[in-house]
Amino acid sequence: MHETFEHTADIGIRVRAHSLPALFEEAAVAMFSAITPNLAEVRPVKELAFRLSAEGTDYLLLDWLRELLFVFETQRLTFSHFTVRLPAPRPGGTQIGEPLPGEPELAAAVLEATAIGEAFDPDRHGEGNEVKAVTYHELAVRPEGDGWLAEFILDI
C-alpha cells in the first residue's frame, strides 16, 4: 500500500510492503499513480526488463524509480505491474550511508525487474503530475514491524 504525505511544494510518498521486493514494486506503482492516475486502465501490452545495481538499498530504490521515470519521459510508456527480484548482493561493492540491518557491509545492492504497461494515452490513463525527479531529501528505506517502509519525495 502507499499514501502521500504532506510536502509543501512537491509530493511525499510513503510505501509499506511485507517484503523488500514488494516494497520496490509498490513504490513504482505509487510513482506512476502520481503521473498517470488511472493505473487500472493501463493494459499489459509491453514488458520491459531492468537490471540495476547501486551502493545501497535506498540508492537502489531511487535508481529503480529514476530508471522508470526516464523510460516514461523518453519512450512515453506507462506501467502498472512490476515484478522485482533482489538477488544476493555481490561482494566487493562499496556501501554508502547506513548499512541496513542484516545487510552485509561493502556490498552493492542489485535489482532485476520487469515492468508491464503500454504507451501513455492521456485520455485513458489521465494526466497527473509531471514528475521532474525522485529526490534524495528524506529518502528512507527501513524495516518496520514485520515488513518494510520506504519514503521518498517526488519533485513536481
Binding site: 550511508g97 525527479a133 529526490t135 534524495y136 531529501h137
Partner: peptide, 26 residues
Amino acid sequence: YQVCDDALKQLRRAPEKYGIELPDRQ
C-alpha cells in the same frame, strides 16, 4: 532535470572523497 539527476548520482561519493560533512544527502 536529467542534468541535475545525473550530477547527483555522480556526486554520491564526493562528500566522502572531499571530507565534507552534510546533514542532507540532497
